[in-house]
Design a protein around this nucleic acid. Structure first.
Length: 499
RNA sequence: CGGGGAGUGGCGCAGCCUGGUAGCGCAUCUGGUUUGGGACCAGAGGGUCGUAGGUUCGAAUCCUAUCUCACCGACCA
């Protein structure tokens, strides 16, 4: 059995394996603040790449960025009843505005605020309240705004990237004159998320709508993209909400329409977060650590010179050659981005493994032999394949190799998901059996459902299985019966255990 | 919030039951050896043992309180 760079392996302990991958890849670490993570440079570079692509997509569809306060007055928060109920148990609340030195120099909060401030768990209330002043006429619509920010949700249990008390995200908030426009926007943004996840993160997703129980608090409809992780659990990777007129009414967003009457507007909101990084790790990484999809990778390749130690005669030449190679590679582009190349000329043992664990797509080895032959030895992180290329050929071919890695990762994930997906289960016994298997979380089961909250609740209590979504396609239920109750089915539902 | 677990040099741990003021591995630094790879030898630096109180001649070790963290549940992006 070959030694793996990450211990334990996925098979041995998936949860612990995940923590180790994050740590060994230098993506993030726990901070001294409960539930809050420190995103390290290697992880933040990844997030910046993701941001940059998404931001371009938002702007290309007419959205503009803005920034709203981190604090929401308590009174404002309480205006949409369902929304409040959904977030009340996980709000951080600011109640004081200064510190005083007490006994023994110990600092204690003083100066109570007249009205407590909530640290935003999401910004619907503060943004829609603002929109009520921005929107006066049908000419002001649609209003398409996005914000990049942090939010705070005081979760009971946290896990790096997957669920942290504070996380980074973007939240889009839009206002429309008609229901049709708002629904179209909700679906457009869902498509953008799905496209980003599949084409950039190489994570295959299933698009669908949430059941009543899983909907965003205050929304009429929540659209979601669901991904399958390597342990057979599902991950909600992004959501897009059709908010109906609920928030428009709560925040009083009205406009004077062409016909001269005052109308309430229709709003949407949509978001993706640093959680996608967690999804990416759980989709692609292996027992040797992280594997980054080239399109968003913090770096595309690392050059590792083989130095001669004591007999340093040739070392300077090798490092120089590596620097020249780096410069030439950096002139190349892949996926509208100049190649980012790291050069690690440290002589520490195990530096190769450090880069394996960081998930960099290509490792380029250059030593005396390569210099002499005019070649480079290149190893792909995804397949572990080592190929010796003539130097010039590799430089022009690098983007092509990266593109192949990107596709390989996506296809591999797609194949994996296909193995974890069944549409064959039609009776309750088989359904229960599937999800009671201890070795695996069970994957996706696409099965008929009667649309009743009671049956949904039942499988959640018995099996910790939830309805991830009602897929947008495959909704033919004619003649089919609910997998749980046997009653006539209303929907095809995608069931899974979830993060 | 419930269930078990853990807080000891930068990291990972032992020591605790049977009190006598700290030890191992990795990492770091120095010197040497080695060199297509997760090295070896020798030496060195670095810790008031989570915090507060108590028992004692003496506490990492016993007692009490308290804080924190990761993990498994319930809750959730």
């Amino acid at each position: 059995m070959a030694k793996t760079a990450i211990s334990p392996t996925r098979e041995e302990n998936y949860a612990e394996w995940y923590q180790q991958v994050v740590k060994e890849a230098q993506l993030a670490e726990n901070s001294s603040v409960r539930g809050c993570m420190i995103i390290k440079p290697w992880g933040y570079a990844l997030w910046e790449n993701m941001q940059s692509v998404l931001d371009g997509m938002f702007k290309a569809t007419g959205h503009k960025n803005a920034y709203f306060p981190i604090f929401i007055p308590l009174s404002l928060m309480s205006k949409e009843a369902e929304h409040v109920d959904g977030f009340a148990t996980e709000c951080a609340v600011v109640t004081h505005h200064r510190l005083e030195k007490g006994e023994g120099g110990k600092l204690t909060p003083a100066g109570p605020l007249e009205e407590p401030l909530i640290v935003r768990p999401t910004s619907e209330m503060i943004i829609n309240e603002t929109f009520s002043r921005w929107v006066q006429s049908y000419r002001d619509l649609p209003l398409l705004i996005n914000q990049w920010s942090n939010v705070v949700r005081w979760e009971m249990r946290t896990r790096l990237f997957m669920r942290t008390a504070e996380f980074l995200w973007q939240e889009g908030h839009t206002v429309h004159a008609t229901k049709e426009d708002a629904v179209a926007e909700t679906e457009r943004m869902l498509d953008i998320y799905a496209g980003f996840l599949e084409n950039y993160m190489a994570i295959p997703v299933i698009k669908g709508t949430k059941s009543d129980a899983e909907r965003f608090p205050g929304a009429d409809d929540t659209y979601t993209v669901e991904a399958m992780m390597q342990d057979g659990k599902a991950l909600q990777a992004g959501t897009s909400h059709f908010l109906g007129q609920n928030f428009a009414k709560a925040a009083n967003i009205q406009f004077l329409d062409k016909d001269g009457t005052q109308k309430h507007a229709w709003t949407t909101s949509w978001g993706v977060s640093t959680r996608m990084i967690g999804g990416m790790i759980m989709t692609h990484s292996d027992d040797d650590g992280l594997i980054l999809p080239p399109k968003v990778a913090s770096a595309h390749a690392v050059i590792l010179p083989f130095l001669k130690g004591k007999d340093k005669s040739g070392d300077a030449t090798i490092v120089e050659a590596c620097e020249a190679l780096k410069a030439e590679l950096e002139a190349q582009s892949y996926a509208e981005r100049k190649l980012v190349i790291e050069l690690d000329d440290s002589d520490t043992a195990g530096k190769k493994w450090a880069w394996v664990k960081k998930g960099v797509p290509l490792r380029i080895e250059v030593g005396a032999r390569e210099l002499e032959e005019g070649t480079v030895a290149v190893t792909r992180r995804d397949t572990n394949e080592k190929t010796v290329y003539p130097r010039a050929e590799f430089i022009t071919k690098a983007p092509e190799i990266l593109a192949d890695i990107q596709i390989t990762l996506f296809k591999r994930a797609e194949t994996f998901r296909a193995d974890k997906m069944t549409t064959e289960i039609t009776d309750k016994e088989a359904f229960y059996k599937r999800f009671k298997n201890d070795r695996s979380a069970g994957g996706f089961v696409l099965a008929p459902w009667d649309g009743d909250a009671a049956s949904e609740k039942q499988v959640k209590e018995h099996l910790q299985v939830t309805i991830r979504c009602l897929p947008l396609t495959d909704q033919d239920v004619a003649g089919k019966n609910c997998v749980i109750t046997g009653n006539p089915a209303k929907y095809m539902a995608l069931f899974a255990k979830a993060y």
